[in-house]
Nucleic acid binder design. Structure first.
Lengths: 143, 143
DNA sequence: CTAGTAATCTATTAAATCAATAGACTTTCA
DNA sequence: TGAAAGTCTATTGATTTAATAGATTACTAG
């Protein structure tokens, strides 16, 4: 399961993607619209700013806005940033690999097999799923 | 990521599957072979016994053994039992569904889409992955 | 140039979950 | 009947998650 932090991040990003190139949006606005505790959201947005996904502007008329293009931000990037690995096991993780103590021999470990498959499929789907994609779909459905 | 509990459970089950129909196996044996804290393993095995995956025999010569056939125990069942939902979001979960507070309208929520896809693919792969399958693969690779 | 606005940064805390441990009890078998 | 092994209840410590508080910095308008 994704953490609340990650869910908040996704919702905030979608909100900003809907307002792409329309100037900075106050944290307060996002927090209220998406029902996210403001202070918690601050930390989340800051993290995404440091990751160069968002930019921000201080002072009056300031706020956050998307720096990357909506079609260049996918779920893989967000999940890895907020929650870490996509894989279900450390020993099959591409970005957060750790050997497992239990199985001596990774090559012959029958367990890894299934979880490598899950990882690959998940990555495939989640990397196709961009902010642009999500916003487009919502518009089509008339949100 | 799967919890340690879940990983321990899978390793213990594979160990028992390798010894299917060869009589009860001591907790102690499993714990030592798989490097799992014995007391923790007790709780895990007990839970799987209550779920009718394992049976046990008390007293001298007792221990745990697979009740279900190795080909009838798949990763989906184990993960759900140990860690809960397979899905990444509660609002797309089949067995642990919860509405999400963030999105008013589930039908038009563009986010659910991607995560429904991930859920379906994960379920497909994990349900194909049985203990029999894992043991077979390990034998082929000459473990 | 200064008042107000909004993001930034540091720090702390509360709650929940995860992982592990302890010990008394029960069943079974030789 | 006593030793072996699982069963049950409970507690604990560590870690992570979620949320909050307050001081500081940067920006803009007037």
């Amino acid at each position: 399961m994704l953490s609340k932090k990650c869910k908040y991040a996704i919702h905030a990003l979608v909100y900003l993607a809907e307002r792409y190139q329309q100037g900075p949006v106050h944290i307060q606005d996002i927090a209220e619209a998406q029902h996210i505790p403001k202070k918690f959201l601050e930390a989340i947005l800051l993290e995404m700013r440091n990751a160069k996904i968002l930019h921000s502007k201080k002072g009056k008329g300031g706020g956050y806005y998307l720096y990357k293009k909506p079609e260049d931000v996918n779920m893989v990037e967000i999940i890895r940033l907020m929650d870490g690995a996509i894989s279900l096991l450390p020993c099959v993780s591409l970005n957060y690999y750790e050997p497992c103590e239990e199985c001596r021999n990774e090559v012959t470990c029958g367990i890894r097999d299934a979880f490598t498959g899950v990882r690959d499929e998940s990555l495939k789907i989640l990397s196709r799923s961009t902010l642009a994609h999500i916003v487009k779909r919502q518009r089509e459905l008339g949100k």
